[in-house]
Write a protein that binds this DNA or RNA. Structure first.
Length: 708
DNA sequence: ATAGGGAAATTTTTT
DNA sequence: ATTTCCCTAT
């Protein structure tokens, strides 16, 4: 019991000892956040005699959930098996697999990914004979569902045209999408959460049951929750919320996915009596790097005050390289990386995926093995999706989207015309596509191929019932002669390897998790961005890591390169207009800085090609936020004379508060009413008034009053 | 059924 | 520049 606390600092200890009631743990970068949560759970078990079956911990990624489970298993042993550690989405899916029928779900429902979603929208557009792209409508769907709003609410505020069609028609698309999803027994990611909420609201008995299973709730990365996740949390937490959330508003970087930073900023108002713990001791980075990070993030208004203190002292100044163009920038990175010769300890981070190409090229040319994270996900490859589609249909024959995907893959003489006729027949008779296929005889003139396909499908459906995913996919491979078909193709060899990889994954999964094909598909659906299985020579443990800033959150590296620090790139051009967006860009920069343990490089290119057009850029405004004495420009061939910061007592910097107001504060204006301070700069504050938008006000004249 | 041309579209994206 | 999609021609 003592070891639970003795390895922690005082702030962490306080958080760990928290028992009942709501609590907010503001955990700065590298402050031992996961560690604190893990210890807290262990403490509940050991000291408070809470049952493991009463504890829920929610994370955003499967990776984070997996890590937490692992650490808990190490710490508490066997009882960790009964803990519920999961992502929002898997937790919801698990609940809906049991209680889904209460909210109208059919038992074999499948989870649609982005591709499936687009496919359905495309189909609807065709039905309505519209010549529009699915993109804007998917965005509309996301916005409505991420915010948990109703269609009419959304349409009320929407512009008159969406994706080039009148908004009333767009609303029609939305309705058709929803009913299409339901009739083929499909849900999308958002539905998982929304339907869980609906279930809880309509079935108090179910909610009560789940609440027993979640008497103590932990939510990680709370700054990234969207309104729906917020609501789900609130519902689960109930009247007497034993809810502990952990997060860092300064690392909120998913606003574009409707994450709402106010969820964490307002936590103490939302949950009166909430205790607040601040973890400000940083174990990751040198003093120099932390000073830079603090100086940068201080410029944001929308935050909770927090100053990271260093544990490591000293450190080297940030190295800045100014490149004449993006090519030279990449060449510079490659040279430095080779010189440092610590590949696995090095990461190169960028704002957009498009930047990775040049970097990868130059690094490889310099003989550096590269690990590219998150480019094209394994499960997004066409051949993989094809094979998975067979599984989805076998599990849920109502799934018309996936059925159409496989009906002529590989080609078996069921062409577009045939399919169109059959689909039309299905729609007219109000039956599923599969049923139409079964009735092919009466619909088309040459039904042999279709009949053969249906026969094969029936046998696959049988296999799906009887055996696990590995055997199922093997049978599919045989039945459709996929190996032979792929060998004909140009890059068939590589794709075949991917398939072998999937088969292996299925076998591994059966061994480790075990379960039906349906369970396997669930886990695939919720782990779409799984670690890329290695391909080719380089092992990850010998490679330099390349990824976007978003992907870097939660990771750390001794050496970090932040490239492309240019206006219009970081901050990104689409984020320049709104202050909130600009602050999110700054947080992205902050996240990048705080990934570095020892050494940080920043660079920008004065010229780069964007979409094939040459562009000239100014250096990023964020570079101005780095204190001069902590930034050292180096030349084309590096520079060894980087000043080293002498030991300094880590004294919290005085905040430059020129007005009396702080970001996040609630205020009242005589004319505009209540609002939230977004920014305070000098004698000027920017306040967000609900319904009115942002207003810039002079403190002197505005007559603002603070509210509690 | 499929190759090949041409137009359009390119921020980030935990699930 | 490059990728992706859609149409047309074969």
């Amino acid at each position: 019991m003592d070891d639970l606390l003795s390895s922690l600092n005082p702030a962490q200890q306080e958080a760990v000892k928290h028992y009942e009631g709501p609590a907010l743990v503001v955990a700065g970068a590298g402050s031992g956040k996961t560690r604190t949560v893990v210890h807290r759970i262990a403490y509940l078990l050991r000291e408070r005699r809470v049952y493991p079956g009463e504890i829920l911990a929610v994370t955003f990624t499967n990776k984070a959930a997996g890590e937490m489970k692992e650490r808990l298993a190490k710490m508490v042993g066997g009882p960790s098996k009964d803990l519920w550690v999961s992502t929002f989405h898997s937790a919801s899916l698990r609940i809906l697999r049991v209680y889904g029928e209460y909210v109208g779900l059919k038992s074999g429902f499948v989870v649609y990914d982005d591709d499936d979603q687009s496919a359905l929208i495309k189909e609807i557009l065709k039905e309505l004979e519209l010549e529009a792209k699915p993109g804007p409508f998917r965005a509309m769907l996301d916005r409505i569902k991420n915010q948990g709003r109703s269609l009419s609410e959304y349409l009320g505020e929407a512009p008159d045209f969406i994706g080039g069609v009148p908004k009333e028609l767009a609303g029609d698309i939305y309705r058709r999408y929803q009913s299409g999803m339901r009739s083929q027994g499909a849900v999308d990611f958002n539905d998982l959460l929304l339907l869980s909420i609906q279930l809880f609201e309509e079935q108090p008995a179910v909610l009560a049951k789940i609440r027993q299973r979640a008497r103590f709730i932990h939510v990680d990365e709370y700054q990234d929750t969207n309104p729906v996740q917020y609501k789900l949390t609130k519902l689960l937490a109930g009247e007497n919320p034993n809810l502990l959330v952990v997060g860092d508003p300064d690392q909120s970087i998913y606003g574009f996915r409707n994450a709402d930073i106010n969820n964490i900023l307002d936590f103490t108002k939302d949950y009166p009596g909430a205790k607040v713990f601040r973890l400000e001791e940083n174990y990751r980075s040198t003093d120099a790097i932390l000073k830079v990070a603090n100086a940068v993030i201080e410029k944001n208004a929308l935050r909770l005050e927090k100053v990271l203190r260093t544990v490591k002292t000293g450190g080297e100044a940030v190295r800045l390289y100014r490149a004449p163009n993006a090519r030279e920038e990449a060449a510079f990175v490659a040279r430095e990386v080779v010189k440092l010769a610590q590949y696995p300890e090095t990461a190169v981070l960028y704002r957009t995926n498009a930047q990775s190409r040049l970097l990868e090229e130059h690094l490889r040319r310099a003989g550096v093995p590269v690990r590219l994270v998150g480019a094209v996900g394994f499960f997004e490859r066409r051949e993989i999706k094809d094979l998975l589609a067979y599984g989805r249909v076998a599990v849920n024959p109502l799934d018309g989207i996936n059925l159409r995907r496989i009906v002529n893959t590989p080609p078996r003489g069921i062409g577009a015309n045939t399919v169109a006729k059959l689909v039309e027949h299905a729609q007219k008779s109000g039956s599923s596509v599969l049923q139409a296929l079964r009735q092919a005889e009466s619909v088309i003139s040459r039904p042999q191929q279709v009949q053969a396909f249906v026969e094969m499908l029936d046998s696959l459906i049988e296999t799906a019932f009887e055996s696990g995913p590995a055997q199922f996919f093997e049978q599919v491979m045989d039945a459709i002669g996929f190996r032979e078909a792929l060998k004909q193709e140009l890059d068939g060899e590589e794709r075949l390897q991917n398939i072998e990889e999937l088969l292996r994954a299925a076998r591994d999964w059966e061994e480790e998790e075990g379960g039906s094909l349906s369970d396997f598909l669930d886990s695939v659906a919720l782990t779409a961005k799984a670690e890329e299985p290695q391909k080719g020579e380089a092992l990850p443990e010998e490679s330099v890591t390349l990824m976007t800033l978003h992907n870097a959150k939660g990771l750390e590296f001794p050496t970090v390169f932040l490239v492309g620090l240019e206006e219009n790139l970081l901050p990104h051009r689409n984020s320049l207009n709104r202050l909130e967006d600009l602050e999110e860009e700054r947080r992205l920069f902050y996240v990048g800085i705080t990934r570095a343990q020892e050494r940080l490089y920043v660079s920008y290119a004065e010229e780069r090609e964007t979409y094939g057009k040459r562009e000239y850029s100014r250096p990023s405004r964020f570079l101005d936020d780095i204190p001069e004495d902590l930034l050292k420009e180096i030349g084309a061939f590096g520079d060894t004379s980087v000043p080293v910061l002498a030991y300094t007592r880590p004294e919290p910097k005085a905040k430059t508060v020129l007005s009396d107001f702080k970001g996040g504060e609630r205020v009242k204006h005589p004319r505009f009413g209540q609002g939230t301070v977004v920014a305070a700069l000098g004698g000027e504050v920017t306040v967000m008034f609900p319904g009115l938008g942002l207003k810039k006000l002079a403190v002197k004249f505005a007559g603002l009053e603070k509210m509690d």
